[in-house]
Every structure is written in structure tokens, then in C-alpha cells.
Write a protein that binds this DNA or RNA. Structure first.
Length: 877
RNA sequence: GGGAGCUUAGCUCAGCUGGUUCAGAGCAUCUGCCUUACAAGCAGAGGGUCACUGGUUCGAACCCAGUAGCUCCCACCA
């Protein structure tokens, strides 16, 4: 049977994934084994796979597959997130395309559409993950709005409310006047724009009842939003600003509305900016709002939800804010209060979805107090209860946790878990899990009230308010606190996610973990980087620089893309993605495939192995053990990229380039059975080590390399343990390999064909063991003898010298040049070591072994130099 | 504005407690090869003042201080 030249991955991927599912290898139920658990960071239910998911999920799969092979009960729980904002936006858009406005629908009608949409498009991403080879337990797939999970969310809300940790409060939100909704900070895009800075003077009076016409003095403020003047309730200056000291206790008069407001002093002011005096509009600016609270100022909301001036503004009522901006400037100028106009650059927030300029607006929201929850979560990370990888994120984490602000958990949306708060017409509130319970509670607490009049809060909860429960809720740890799953799988082992959501998600899961289980949710958090393009730009749809993962996998194979992504993505580092990485991954699969093709093509016969075979097998066994140990260590330190690179080199360089070349029989000759069997064993070992990275090709080859019993698979085979190895054996082989390289090098520089068999002599006894191997790989006859034969070129390999019978193939000029360069280098080297050794302070202070080493270096160097000098002399003869 | 981090070969990154021929790896580049597993390959080679300036030390890529540049997070400049 002729094998194809490269790995036929498309078929193999489908075949093996179906096989794994059919055999249920990814399923997990609690048993006597040690559990290994990962919960997936749930992607948006309507999302599609992008490069970030690829990196993240490949890493998880590597960890899970290795754990499974190590004999642990591996459980990778998949699922999706309802993503209120994103999904609702998509549904609204879909409806708009059908000519339906959200505002024309009832909540129930809208949700019906949303669920239909979710059923239709939801979960595509999970199907895509299967293409990648993700070994999730698909029977455990969860969605954050599945009934038990939603129930858990409501239960937690009620519980925290009853504990006094949830409260209602006023907060400034980002209001989108076009979308008529509040949007989260993440949905506000700050853009640098050219704006006008208007300098406006306000009359100053000395009494609260002062009359502006009596004023002889003015204070000039600078503003980019003059339309908000109508909502001003103070003017603020810096307490240390000498220009305004005399204004202490005085008042300013707001133009048009003639409101007399205090002049207040606060260090918040930047004296350098504008005039050093700030107009304070607590209802329409976040910092002014803070100042307002601090100084007890009134808050006048001069804007209607649609961005026009409200009744409270008193003037320009019903006109759009930007129209008013122009008008008010003109009117100020007319009454002589506009001092000047400057052009400046500033950043203005725009709504990501509607592009409208965001207006800060006060509104009533639900909050979760963070203080008491942050403490244990901070301590846990600082004491490495929960380990962050890489560790540098501990700093950022601490900084955030120490300055944590209360979490605004309400969202003005319909898609999500509706807040279980019920209001009486007079505004009194009861919080309960269901309407029935709320009514009962109402009767209990407010016997005089009519429970039929209770109205549920219109808002839903922030999506993070359900995802923070994920590691518990996927195991139904709220509904049934002591079920077998939660007791077995929780705390989970590793979490793999992006540092961007360290606070939004990771920190909050830790809080919820301690609050509801009294235990951390996971042991380790592996933080990946962001996948960027070659120029370091974030991948985004609008830039069009984000490749389609499915196309990449179709082109380079899933294994190729997986390894390509992992070749250079250490934890916490951004990955500058380039398709050439996938190419490298694909080439690697090709290399493995061809090694398999070679081995598979051998004819086997029973006879004794050659000396060359024996030395190769011995060396490779030790080298394999060494590499296994290194890889194991790297895995344990979560240096996944490095573990892969270690195995890459083991496979390509050691196994293919050296070992297989050493034992490869001459053309048409058979291989001896013992060597063949040994080779298969080595190959299997390598396939096992590579399996977590490249599940498909390894499975394919593993099945074809030997007879396998029915239902067996590399997926559930045993992870190979690193045996002992002797470094001396590896070193002595490396010496032989070095000799081979030198001979090849000699050939290259002499322009001699590799087909010519050379005669080589050496007095180095240690080469005797590898005599056959060197002869084979360097196409030569190696003789070990103490005398140097006539007419040979000496070549230095390490500290030992070989002599090459080079009749007619030498290139004396080249050789001479090389020797001289080498001598120069050694001279410098020798000099520096001598200097070090003649320094008495070095000899006295340095550790004895260090000094000893320096002496050894010096010895080796002089030995080499002697030999090189001798060689040089042969040229002058 | 506050905080954190980074700067080592053309690119992406290792380099652990300062000391082994310590200046490394992979990719890319160059040279020579269609050698019967693989040209998606083979055999070789070149390439770096470890950002800069001082300091500590017998000894610094590594420790300390300063300078420059870059990145990220938080806050949002009236």
C-alpha cells in the first residue's frame, strides 16, 4: 500500500473526532480517580470562532488531554454565555431588518424572538470547537440562561440582598440618546476630536441673594459643552490658586437662568487648564457629580432622554443639545459674557452601536457592595491560593482589588435574568425569587399594601452576574449544594482566559467561590495574551485582519493550526499571529507523517543489529528520557510553548535527523526485527507526548503503527513517564555527532560531493563506540589509530582531532583562514580567563568549583591551540 | 492623570539563585544539494555593544539608580 506524501488530515480529523465521541472518551463522571477539571470561559452564544478562541481553547485542550492520559478523570465543561448586550443588539438589528421596532414589542414578544434567534444561531461556536479537536464533555454543555443557572442567579441576588450586600443607588451612566438606553463603559468609544473651548464669564456676587446687575467682578470658566451651563450649580477653583483666594465665600451667577451658585474650592481642579475655574454640572458630568456629592450641591437634569433640553433647563426646551450649543454661544456673545473661543483636541465618548455622542446621565441602578467580598479574593491571590500565571498579573490584580468600586449589576435590557425586585406603586420594594414569594413577603412586611399591585423591576442583571457563578453553577452547586458532581469537581484545576477579563470575570468568580462554597473556584489561572496581527494590531472585523479559523484549519489542518498558535505564545504574552506559523505547524505534521511513511515502508527480517544500530538505540533511549523529563517539567510550570518546542526538536532533530538516519537500512535492504520494534516503541512514546498538541495525526499514526485492540485510542492511553538517563551517554553521542558535522562541513567547504566515501582517522578512543555510526552518517570509513597518516588534513572537533584523507579535495586557503580565525578567538578567550585567574580577589572570593572550572577552560583552550598551531604548520610545509 | 510591565539576532521569544565556551532557541536569511520518508525536504553558514548612562561586585543580560522608547490596565482632561 502506497502512503500519500502528506498527511490526509481532512478525512482523519472527521474520522477520529467521530470515533472519540462514539467511544465517549471525553465523558466524565465522578469516580475513584483524581479529578482534573476545567470550565470553559463561555463564549457568546451567538458568537463565531475567532483566533482568540483558537488560542485559548487549544491551550485548554492540551492541558485536558495530558491530564486524561495521566490517568486523571478529566472533565472539560463547555458552554455559552447569553451576553445580554451583544445578543440583544443582534436581535434588535435582526428585527429592524424585518421592519420591527423593539419599542413596538412587549417584553414577552421580544424575548420570544430572542430565544428563537438563540435556538437558531446559538452554539455554532461549540460546533466549531469540535473542528479544533476540543475534548469537551459535550453532555455537560451549559448555557448561562439554562433554567438551573438562571435560578442560581436569582437565588444569589436574593441572598446577597438579604445579606445587605445589594442596594439601589444613583449613579451616572453612559446614556445613548439615540438608542435611548444606558450603555456600559466597554461600549463607549472615546475618539479624539477637534472641539471648541468656550471661555464664559459669570458675574460674581457676595451674597446668596445677590443681584448680578450689581456685580463689578466676573469669574471666567472654560467649557466645551456650554449647553450644560443651564444645569450649573457651582463654580469650582483650586484652594491654592492665588488668583481666586479672594472669592472664598462668594457666589457666581449662572447666565440666562440667573441662578446664584456658590464658588467652591477643591483640589480636584487642574490650575493649568483653561482659566483654572470650572463650572460644576452634577447632573451631566461624572466628576462634577462627585464634586456635587462632596460639596452637597443640587443636581439639575437639563436633558431629556432623547438629548433635547428638558423643562428643567428653563430655556431652549425641546431643542437638540448640539443646536442649543451653537445658539447659546451666540446668545452669550450677545450679552457680552463670551470672552473667547479656543480650538482644542479632546476625547469624546461615542456609542459603539449608534455612534451617538454619549451623555453622562444620572439614573437609579442596583449595586453589589464589593468591599467585604474583595478581601478574601485579594488575599487568596496574594497568598497563591489561586495562582496567576504569569505572576506579574498579581500586581494588577492587587491594585484593582484594593481600589474596587461597587459593582453596578443592573442593565436596561430585556435579554437576561430579570431583576427579582418588585415595587409597590409608592416605590417600596420587596425582593424575592418569584412573584409568589414576593407577594407573600409583601403581605408579611406591608400588611396594608395590596400585593396585586407589585410591579417587577424592568431591568435585567449584568451578564457577569451569571458568569461569576459559572464554576459552581455548571455543576448545579446552588440548587443542590451537596451533589456528587460539585463535591467531586470543585474546586476546578485550571482556568484559561484573557487578562482583559481578570477583573470582570476571574476576580468575581473567586469572590463567588468563597462566598458560596467557602473555597476557591480554581487552583491556577493561565492568562493568555491577545492575538494580534503581524503589525501588532488587535484583530478586528472592521480591520479585516482576522483570519477565519475554519479556513485556516481547512488549509493547514487542525493540528497544524494548533501547533502554529502555540509555537510562540508564552503565558501572558500577546501572540503576533501570522499565517506562516500555521505553515510551520503544517510542515511539522508533514515531517511526522513522513517519518511514519519511512518506518512503515521497511521490510523486517530477523538478524542481529549492527554496532551502529546498537549505539543509536542506546543513545536515543537516553535522549528520549531526557526530553520527556524536560517536557514534563515545562508542562508542570505551564510553559506550554516551550514544552511544545522541546518535543518539536526531539521529533525533528533527534528522532528524524539523527536516530532514523542512523538505523535506516540501505536502499532495498531489510531492517532487523529488534531495531524495528525498538523504533516503533520510540515512535509511540513520541506520539504520546505530542498527542495533547496534535491529537489527530498522532491518533492516526498510532493506530497504523501496530495492531491495536478494539476500542483503543491514544486519547485514553497512558502518558509515558520519563525514565532515567545518563548524561554521559548523551554527551558522548553529541561528540560523535559533532565529528560528523565537522566532516560534512569539511566536505561543504571543500566542495566535495557527499557521494564520495572519505577515509578518516582519529586517535580518539571515545569514538570507537560510534565508529560505524559516523562512517554511515558521514559517508566515510573511520579508523581509530594513534598515528596520523601521511597527506591527511587535520580537523578539530571539540578537543579531539580527526584526520581526513583528502587527496584532491582540500581547499587550503579556506582551511587556513578558518584555523587562524579560531586561533584568534581562543587567544582572546585564553587571555580573559588568565586575567580572571591572576586576579587574587577572584580566586579568594569565588566558589572553588567556579575557579576550578576556569582552570579547566584554560587547559582546554591551550590544548586546542596547540593542535591548531600544529595544523597551521602543515600548511607552511 | 494613577498603576503595572517591557526593551536580548531581521521576527517571535528563552535565559531560574550574578560564575559551565553564556550570549541561546525557533522562524526568516545566505551557500550547496531534486541523496530511493519528507524541496512542506537535506547538509552547512552568517547574524547581537543584551535600549542608554552611571553605580554595586573579583565578576553584571541578570542587582541598584537615572534617562529614552514601547505596551497594557484603571480614571476620562473641564
Amino acid at each position: 500500500m502506497e502512503l500519500p506524501k502528506s498527511f490526509p488530515f481532512a478525512e482523519a480529523e472527521n474520522k477520529w473526532y467521530a470515533y472519540w465521541l462514539k467511544k465517549g472518551f471525553f465523558k466524565s463522571i465522578p469516580d475513584h480517580r483524581e479529578p482534573y477539571t476545567i470550565v470553559i470561559p463561555p463564549p457568546n452564544v451567538t458568537g463565531v470562532l475567532h483566533m482568540g478562541h483558537m488560542l485559548n481553547n487549544t491551550l485548554q485542550d492540551v492541558l485536558v488531554r495530558r491530564a486524561r492520559m495521566q490517568g486523571k478523570n478529566a472533565c472539560w465543561v463547555p458552554g455559552t454565555d447569553h451576553a445580554s448586550i451583544a445578543t440583544e443588539a443582534k436581535v434588535v438589528q435582526m428585527l429592524a431588518e424585518k421592519g420591527i421596532k423593539k419599542s413596538d414589542l412587549s417584553r414577552e414578544e421580544f424575548l420570544k424572538y430572542a430565544w428563537e434567534w438563540k435556538e437558531k444561531y446559538g452554539g455554532i461556536i461549540l460546533e466549531q470547537l469540535k473542528k479544533l479537536g476540543a475534548s469537551c464533555d459535550w453532555d455537560r454543555t451549559r448555557f448561562t440562561m439554562d433554567e438551573p443557572l438562571s435560578k442560581a442567579v436569582i437565588q444569589v441576588f436574593v441572598d446577597l440582598y438579604n445579606k445587605g450586600k445589594i442596594y439601589r443607588g444613583t449613579r451616572m451612566v453612559n446614556w445613548d440618546p439615540k438608542g435611548l438606553t444606558a450603555v456600559s463603559d466597554e461600549e463607549v468609544i472615546y475618539r479624539e476630536v477637534q472641539s471648541n473651548l468656550y471661555y464664559v464669564k459669570y458675574p460674581v456676587v457676595s451674597h446668596a441673594e445677590g443681584n448680578p446687575s450689581e456685580s463689578i467682578e466676573f469669574i471666567t470658566i472654560a467649557t466645551t459643552r456650554p449647553e450644560t451651563i443651564l444645569g450649573d450649580t457651582a463654580v469650582c477653583v483650586h484652594p491654592d490658586d492665588p488668583r481666586f483666594l479672594h472669592l472664598r465665600g462668594k457666589y457666581a451667577v449662572i447666565p440666562f437662568v440667573n441662578r446664584v451658585v456658590p464658588i467652591i474650592f477643591d483640589t480636584y481642579i487642574d490650575m493649568e487648564f483653561g482659566t483654572g475655574a470650572l463650572k460644576v454640572t452634577p447632573a451631566h458630568d461624572i466628576n462634577d457629580h462627585k464634586l456635587g456629592i462632596k460639596h452637597g450641591l443640587a443636581s439639575i437634569d437639563t436633558l431629556s432622554p432623547d438629548g433635547t433640553m428638558s423643562e428643567a433647563a428653563g430655556h431652549y426646551i425641546g431643542e437638540d443639545r448640539f443646536v442649543v450649543r451653537k445658539k447659546i454661544v451666540k446668545d452669550l456673545e450677545a450679552i457680552g459674557l463670551l470672552v473667547k473661543t479656543e480650538s482644542i483636541k479632546n476625547k469624546v465618548g461615542h456609542s459603539e452601536r449608534t455612534q451617538a455622542v454619549i451623555e453622562p446621565k444620572l439614573s437609579v441602578q442596583w449595586f453589589l457592595k464589593m468591599e467585604s467580598m474583595a478581601g478574601p479574593a485579594l488575599q487568596s491571590v496574594m497568598e497563591d491560593e489561586v495562582k496567576l500565571l504569569p505572576e506579574k498579573f498579581k500586581n494588577t490584580y492587587r491594585h484593582w482589588m484594593e481600589n474596587v468600586q461597587d459593582w453596578c449589576i443592573s442593565r436596561q435590557l430585556w435579554w437576561g435574568q430579570r431583576i427579582p425586585a418588585y415595587y409597590l406603586p409608592d416605590g417600596r420594594v420587596v425582593v424575592a425569587e418569584t412573584r409568589e414569594k414576593a407577594e407573600a413577603e409583601c403581605i408579611n412586611r406591608y400588611p396594608e399594601a395590596n400585593p396585586n399591585l407589585l410591579q417587577q423591576d424592568e431591568d435585567v442583571l449584568d451578564t457577569w452576574f451569571s458568569s461569576w457563578l459559572w464554576p459552581i453553577s455548571v455543576f448545579d452547586g446552588f440548587e443542590d449544594k451537596n451533589n456528587a458532581d460539585i463535591n467531586y469537581y470543585y474546586p476546578t484545576n485550571d482556568l484559561v482566559t484573557a487578562p482583559e477579563i481578570l477583573f470582570f470575570w476571574v476576580a468575581r468568580m473567586i469572590m463567588a467561590g468563597y462566598e458560596y462554597r467557602g473555597k476557591k473556584p480554581f487552583n491556577n489561572v493561565y492568562l493568555t495574551g491577545i492575538v494580534r496581527d503581524k503589525q501588532g494590531r488587535k484583530m478586528s472585523k472592521s480591520l479585516g485582519n482576522s483570519p477565519d479559523p475554519l479556513e485556516l484549519m481547512a488549509k493547514y489542518s487542525a493540528d497544524g493550526v494548533r501547533t502554529g498558535m502555540l509555537f510562540c505564545s508564552p503565558a501572558g504574552n500577546d501572540l503576533l499571529f501570522d499565517e506562516s506559523l500555521c505553515e510551520q505547524g503544517r510542515n511539522f505534521t508533514n515531517k511526522i507523517w513522513n517519518a511514519y511513511k519511512l518506518v512503515k515502508g521497511w521490510k523486517i527480517k530477523e538478524f542481529s543489529p549492527s554496532a551502529c544500530d546498537i549505539s543509536a538505540m542506546e543513545w536515543f533511549q537516553h535522549r528520549l528520557n531526557q526530553a520527556s523529563e524536560t517536557a514534563e517539567d515545562l508542562f508542570d510550570k505551564y510553559r506550554i510553548s516551550e514544552a511544545l518546542m522541546c518535543l518539536y526538536k526531539l521529533t525533528w532533530d533527534d528522532f528524524c535527523a539523527w536516530y532514523l538516519e542512523s538505523v535506516k537500512p540501505d536502499f532495498g535492504k531489510p531492517i532487523c526485527l529488534e531495531v524495528y520494534n525498538r523504533t516503533i516503541t520510540f515512535f509511540e512514546h513520541i506520539l504520546s507526548l505530542l498527542h495533547p498538541f496534535m491529537p489527530f495525526i498522532t491518533e492516526e499514526i498510532w493506530h497504523n503503527l501496530a495492531q491495536r485492540s478494539e476500542g483503543s485510542s491514544l486519547v485514553v492511553s497512558t502518558w509515558p513517564l520519563a525514565g532515567n538517563y545518563q548524561p554521559e551517554i548523551i554527551r558522548s553521542f553529541e561528540h560523535a555527532a559533532n565529528v560528523i558535522s565537522e566532516i560534512r562541513n569539511f566536505r561543504n567547504s571543500a566542495g566535495s560531493s557527499p557521494k564520495i566515501t572519505l577515509e578518516i582517522y582519529s586517535e580518539d578512543q571515545t569514538l570507537e563506540e560510534y565508529q560505524d555510526l559516523i562512517s554511515k552518517l558521514a559517508n566515510c570509513h573511520l579508523f581509530i589509530q594513534s598515528e596520523k597518516p601521511e597527506g591527511c588534513k587535520p580537523v578539530l572537533a571539540g578537543t579531539s582531532e580527526i584526520w581526513i584523507a583528502s587527496a584532491g579535495i582540500s581547499n587550503p586557503e579556506e582551511e587556513k583562514k578558518k584555523i587562524i580565525a579560531e586561533l584568534e578567538y581562543l587567544k582572546g578567550f585564553q587571555h580573559s580567563v588568565e586575567k580572571k585567574l591572576s586576579n587574587s580577589r577572584f580566586v579568594e572570593n569565588a566558589k572553588p568549583e567556579v575557579v576550578e572550572n576556569e582552570r579547566k577552560k584554560l587547559q582546554d583552550a591551550s590544548l586546542k591551540m596547540d593542535k591548531l598551531m600544529q595544523q597551521l604548520q602543515t600548511f607552511s610545509q
